[in-house]
């Protein structure tokens, strides 16, 4: 793949990430659909891509004391086991099966996102203001 479209995809993914639109999904979709990357390679690139974005955001969240690492310990331990199993399975499973599974995951997440948007806008119109941030 030419490097220019790859850089453009990274740039677009960065915009989407900042807007809270799931930059990772954009990057994986672009790399597989347009860039001709294998699903595993695209997913791996996305994982690397995520690290600095998360570190930057977490630095801000930490100042606001929005998460407490000690309280998250059980989730971290079990999640690490889950991540190892998930990665090992994802890398060895049949490509076609994983492609369909990822498709199903995208559909499910898209539906959940739409439903949450709907709930949010119903709440806002019912109360006549933004209930998540009443100051607005």
């Amino acid at each position: 793949m030419d490097t220019l479209p790859l850089y453009a995809a990274s740039f677009a993914a960065g915009i989407c990430a900042a807007l809270g639109l799931g930059g990772g999904t954009v990057l994986i979709l672009f790399l597989t659909a347009v860039g001709g990357y294998s699903r595993q390679a695209a997913q791996g690139i996305n994982l690397v891509f995520f690290i600095p974005c998360a570190l930057t955001a977490l630095a801000a969240y930490r100042k606001e004391h929005l998460f407490q690492p000690k309280k998250l310990l059980p989730a971290l331990l079990f999640g690490t086991v889950g991540a190892i199993l998930g990665a090992l399975f994802g890398l060895t499973a049949e490509q076609a099966l994983m492609r369909r599974a990822f498709g199903a995951f995208l559909v499910a997440m898209g539906m959940v996102t739409l439903s949450r948007c709907q709930q949010k806008s119903e709440r806002t119109s019912y109360f006549g203001g933004n209930q998540d941030n009443p100051a607005k």
């Binding site: 595993q40 690290i51 998360a54 929005l66 998460f67 991540a83």
Partner: peptide, 28 residues
């Protein structure tokens, strides 16, 4: 807000773990 911050912290760790496995398996 807390859910987003906590999810981000968790996913950061899971991503680092996954990167090691993807790299070890030659996928990255």
């Amino acid at each position: 807000k807390t859910a987003h911050a906590s999810a981000l912290a968790l996913t950061l760790v899971f991503s680092i773990v996954s990167i090691f496995i993807y790299t070890a398996k030659g996928a990255l």
